[in-house]
C-alpha cells in the first residue's frame, strides 16, 4: 500500500461524463491486482473532504502507469475530471482484496453493469495474458454507452452486449441475458453456455439479481460491492458489508480490506 503524489499522464473524455485518467505510479502499477482500488484526493480544499475510491481499470507495468475509468457522480469526480497532464494527484493504494484469480481452466464469465466494467476490464486483460477466454456480458443504458466492446474482443473474449433501450444487442437487463444464456451447473443443455466461475460488478440491484441467479444455477462467483469508503485502510468501519456467517447469522466485513470483492453466496442483501 502506497501513499504518493502521482503525476497525471493523460486525462481523456471518453463520453460526456465519462473519463479515462492515467497516472504515473510505478509501485502501484506493479502491485495492483484486478478488483483493487485507489483512494484519491480530488481537490485541495476541505470540501470535498474525503478521498474518493476508484477501481483500477488497467495498468501498464512497463511504463509504471495506472489507468482509471470513472463517471462524474458529484463534486469529487467532477474536480478529478479537471486534472490535467502534469498535475499531481495524491493517491492511496492499491487497496482492497481484489478478485481471486485461479490458474485452473474453468470456463469463466464476466457480468458487468455500466461503470462496473471498470475493474472487470483489468481482470479481462489479466486473463488474456494467460490465454484464458471469458464470456463477457456487458450491460449499459444504450449503444452510445456501450464501451470497450472492440478492445474486449481484441483480448480474445466473447462479448454479449445488452442495452436498456434495445439500441444494441439484447434488449433488457444484463442479468436477464445471463440467465437465458448460461446453463445450470450439471445440466446437459446443449444450447447454453457452460460456466464454472463468474465475476460481477455493477449497480447494487444488478448484483443482487446476479447473486440470486448464481445460487439458482449453482455456479460459484465473486462480486465487487460498493460501500461508502471513509479511510480506505480498515480503520473507520464505515464501509461495512453484511456477510453471511454461521447459518442465518451475519457479520460486517470491511469493503476496503476484506472486500470490495466478496463470494457471491456470502453477501446478505436487504
Amino acid at each position: 500500500m502506497y501513499l504518493t503524489d502521482s503525476e497525471v499522464i493523460n486525462q481523456q473524455m471518453i463520453l460526456p461524463g465519462l473519463f479515462l485518467l492515467t497516472l504515473h505510479a510505478a509501485e502501484v502499477a506493479g502491485a495492483a491486482r484486478p478488483g483493487q482500488f485507489l483512494h484519491l484526493r480530488c481537490g485541495k480544499t476541505l470540501d470535498p473532504l474525503l478521498r474518493r475510491p476508484i477501481s483500477i481499470h488497467f495498468t501498464d507495468r512497463e511504463k509504471g502507469e495506472v489507468s482509471l475509468l470513472y463517471r462524474i457522480a458529484g463534486k469529487g469526480t467532477s474536480l478529478l475530471s479537471q486534472k490535467k497532464r502534469a498535475d499531481k494527484v495524491s493517491l492511496l493504494g492499491p487497496l482492497g482484496n481484489g478478485f481471486k484469480m485461479t490458474d485452473g481452466n474453468e470456463s469463466i464469465s464476466v457480468v458487468a453493469g455500466g461503470i462496473g466494467l471498470a475493474p472487470l476490464y483489468f481482470l479481462l486483460c489479466e486473463l488474456s495474458l494467460t490465454n484464458r477466454r471469458a464470456a463477457v456480458f456487458l450491460g449499459s443504458a444504450s449503444i452510445e454507452q456501450l464501451i470497450l466492446v472492440k478492445e474486449i474482443k481484441a483480448l480474445g473474449h466473447q462479448v454479449y452486449p445488452c442495452t436498456d433501450d434495445g439500441s444494441s444487442g439484447f434488449h433488457g437487463p444484463v442479468t436477464e441475458l445471463f440467465e437465458k444464456s448460461v446453463a445450470k451447473r450439471g445440466s446437459d443443455n446443449q444450447n447454453a453456455l457452460t460456466i464454472d466461475l463468474v465475476y460481477g460488478c455493477g449497480p447494487r440491484g444488478m448484483l443482487k439479481r446476479l447473486c440470486d441467479l448464481l445460487r439458482q444455477k449453482q455456479i460459484p462467483g465473486e462480486v465487487s460491492l460498493e460501500e461508502k469508503i471513509g479511510c480506505g485502510v480498515g480503520a473507520c468501519l464505515s464501509c461495512a458489508c453484511k456477510i453471511r456467517e454461521g447459518g442465518s447469522g451475519y457479520r460486517y466485513h470491511r469493503a476496503c480490506v476484506e472486500g470490495p470483492v466478496f463470494k457471491a453466496g456470502e453477501v446478505v442483501w436487504e
Binding site: L46, P48, K228, L237, S238, R251
Partner: peptide, 30 residues
C-alpha cells in the same frame, strides 16, 4: 477504537455521510 464488554456488530449502513468540511458517522461502536 472504542471497546465494549461484549462484541458489537455495529449499525446498518450507510454509516458515513460527507457534509461541508465534515463527516457524519454512525458506526455504532462496532
Amino acid at each position: 477504537k472504542g471497546t465494549t464488554l461484549e462484541p458489537r456488530l455495529g449499525n446498518p449502513t450507510p454509516r458515513l455521510v460527507e457534509t461541508s468540511a465534515g463527516i457524519l458517522n454512525a458506526i455504532g461502536l462496532q
